Simulated assay, not measured.
Amino acid sequence: MTVTRPDVSASSRTSSAVRVRLLENDDLGELQALIAADPIVNAVVAARLHEVGDLGDAGLSGSLIGVEIGGRLVGGCFNGGNLMPFCPDPRAVAPLAHFLADRPRICSAVVGRREVLTPLWSVLGRSWSRPRLLRPQQPLLVVSSVDAAAVDPQLRPATAKDLDNYLPAAAAMFTEELGLSPFLHMTRAAYRERLGSLVSARRALLLNDVNGHVIFKAELAAVSPDTCQIQGVWVRPDLRGQGISGPAMAGVVQYALRLAPSASLYVNDFNIPARRLYERLGMRPVATLTTILF
């Protein structure tokens, strides 16, 4: 995917003490410290930095924008397919918002702490197009242990042989969660390739029925030094409420904890059955996220 980098030569509506700019490799140490201050919320950005180690690497699939106040980095965002702000200092939010509002939107979603996204969107919402969906409250949950006796032993990483059966399940989850088909903006071959990269990395987990059809799936969206973020949890609709998800999710958490010291995920506040399941697994809330989808 070609990512448009922001025109950092343009002035932003900030005071002379504040600077908003594209971050470079010289900023990496300060950036990593900022990300590490909120490691569960910033898991996706932390994982990408850990994987590439170079802010100019194409594998980053986006750019990193920083807000400096008095010469010190106090906030910023990852700007790519997702816009993910990290602003532990609330003074960073307004200049970042005005900087982004002056430029074309390139993301399909904005995800971050609710207390950051609320003021950020109060500015961006006046310049960017109307969002398709707004998920204002999504508890971010974390766990660092799991009862091995609760794990479904049939849960396993998907292999290349599973891909043809895994794809319809992944597409069904995508459509149910996001309200549109993944094939609206990409070909089936491109979507299969994206799933294939997860499968080859052993980050797609599944349960099959006796006919080899997927009845449960989950993916590991990001693996950082601090956490493994789980996404795309799905149970085949006709089998929901039959006790499949509990042991399967315990297995996902167990697998994730082999890769990082904690497992995390965020869930829609209105998804009460899922929230109860995660509570039974010992997952505790550490933040509330907001997601804005275009």
Score class of each variant (00 low, 15 high):
residue 212 G to R: 12
residue 143 V to W: 00
residue 155 L to C: 04
residue 131 P to D: 09
residue 160 A to M: 12
residue 196 G to A: 15
residue 159 T to R: 05
residue 188 R to W: 08
residue 124 L to T: 03
residue 188 R to N: 13
residue 198 L to I: 11
residue 167 L to S: 12
residue 203 R to M: 09
residue 171 A to E: 05
residue 167 L to H: 12
residue 188 R to E: 15
residue 182 P to H: 14
residue 125 G to L: 07
residue 202 R to H: 08
residue 180 L to K: 07
residue 152 D to M: 01
residue 199 V to C: 07
residue 120 L to Q: 05
residue 144 S to N: 14
residue 150 A to C: 05
residue 121 W to R: 05
residue 142 V to S: 08
residue 204 A to Y: 07
residue 212 G to P: 01
residue 141 L to N: 02
residue 131 P to G: 10
residue 129 S to C: 14
residue 150 A to K: 02
residue 138 Q to C: 15
residue 203 R to A: 04
residue 212 G to A: 07
residue 195 L to S: 06
residue 126 R to V: 14
residue 130 R to K: 13
residue 162 D to C: 04
residue 172 A to F: 01
residue 135 R to N: 05
residue 170 A to L: 04
residue 123 V to A: 00
residue 205 L to T: 06
residue 124 L to R: 05
residue 163 L to P: 02
residue 155 L to V: 07
residue 149 A to I: 00
residue 168 P to D: 05
residue 133 L to A: 06
residue 176 E to P: 02
residue 171 A to Y: 02
residue 199 V to T: 11
residue 172 A to D: 07
residue 179 G to K: 00
residue 156 R to L: 02
residue 193 E to W: 12
residue 167 L to D: 09
residue 176 E to Y: 02
residue 145 S to F: 02
residue 163 L to C: 07
residue 184 L to C: 09
residue 201 A to C: 10
residue 211 N to D: 10
residue 124 L to D: 01
residue 158 A to F: 06
residue 120 L to M: 11
residue 128 W to S: 02
residue 147 D to S: 02
residue 168 P to N: 10
residue 174 F to K: 04
residue 200 S to E: 15
residue 210 V to W: 10
residue 184 L to E: 14
residue 131 P to F: 11
residue 154 Q to I: 01
residue 205 L to D: 01
residue 156 R to Y: 06
residue 151 V to W: 00
residue 121 W to L: 10
residue 124 L to K: 05
residue 137 Q to G: 12
residue 171 A to L: 01
residue 125 G to K: 08
residue 190 A to N: 13
residue 175 T to V: 13
residue 141 L to K: 03
residue 149 A to F: 01
residue 153 P to I: 00
residue 121 W to T: 03
residue 156 R to A: 05
residue 172 A to S: 14
residue 150 A to P: 01
residue 127 S to G: 11
residue 140 L to M: 15
residue 160 A to Y: 04
residue 150 A to M: 03
residue 156 R to W: 03
residue 203 R to N: 08
residue 199 V to N: 07
residue 134 L to R: 09
residue 194 R to W: 09
residue 167 L to I: 14
residue 154 Q to N: 13
residue 173 M to S: 07
residue 201 A to R: 15
residue 213 H to D: 14
residue 134 L to K: 06
residue 139 P to V: 04
residue 175 T to C: 03
residue 156 R to V: 03
residue 156 R to P: 06
residue 130 R to I: 11
residue 205 L to W: 07
residue 212 G to T: 08
residue 132 R to V: 12
residue 174 F to W: 13
residue 185 H to F: 13
residue 188 R to A: 15
residue 177 E to W: 00
residue 165 N to S: 13
residue 177 E to C: 04
residue 136 P to C: 09
residue 134 L to Y: 06
residue 126 R to G: 07
residue 206 L to K: 09
residue 208 N to P: 08
residue 162 D to H: 10
residue 182 P to D: 12
residue 136 P to S: 12
residue 135 R to F: 13
residue 197 S to Y: 13
residue 185 H to N: 14
residue 178 L to V: 09
residue 154 Q to D: 08
residue 149 A to Y: 01
residue 156 R to M: 04
residue 125 G to V: 06
residue 184 L to G: 07
